[in-house]
Amino acid sequence: MTLASSYSTAPATNWLTALRVPPSVALSLAIIVLAIAWSLAPGLFTSHDPVNGVPAHKLLGPSLQYWFGTDHLGRDLYTRVVYGTASSVSSAMIAVLIGVIAGGFIGLLAGFLGGWVDTVLARLVDVLLAIPKFLLAVIVVTAIGFDTTNAAIATGVSAVAVFARVMRSEVIKTRQATFVEASFLLGGSRWHILWRHVLPNASRSVLPLAVLHFGDSILVIASLAFLGYGDPPPASDWGLLISIGKDYLKWPWLVYAPAFVTIATVLSVNRISRWLRKTD
């Protein structure tokens, strides 16, 4: 009897400990879920109009009716933040995807093939690393044109080098593992080993880095929007909202409210990334 019960509870407790998340991580997850909900269905969270305001209600402080106050055109700031989430968050997603896919591919090739391919790609990565990340994003967005999607692409390009480096070192680590050697001896082809063994194992440490870069990308894209390299108003990217708010510092909530949302989101993303790395 005891044997049976201990047998049946063992997997359950494992499952529980696996899912037991610290409160700060739970809070972070909740914030991210909220941000995703805002970006998917902004209309569910607010009844105001993000573009047309009530001129009589301009520059009001935060209240029950206007949670984050109103801007110089009488628009509800909370509504603008909610509607700006989609482009602020999804563009960061695009940036991370570009970084992971392009950087991962470069790192995979360099690490797996080695030799002159590695040397050439390593120099390319060195070049990308030598140009300050933000400056790189700025010139790329200058070259391809100012809008939020291009800002996301530029941010992604500036992240390629980091992913390439991590992927390369992980691939090299995995390639020397015994099971990879075994697979070679069993007659596995290079590509089979690459896809079946090296890639899945190497990408494990790329995940927390991707999450970390998701937060970083939100910041870079917000900075580009702040400088006016994203979509022009009436778009309401968080960086753009803060940039508009800086001209109205007498009504500080115009800066503090969108800034608070940005910080809360990025902080949550970073917390989750750190947690992922620890549980790995």
Partner: peptide, 16 residues
């Protein structure tokens, strides 16, 4: 971790 989550233009604006 907190410092890395704050855009530096926000820090600048808050200081100003």
């Amino acid at each position: 971790s907190l410092f890395l989550s704050v855009p530096n233009f926000v820090i600048g604006l808050v200081l100003i």
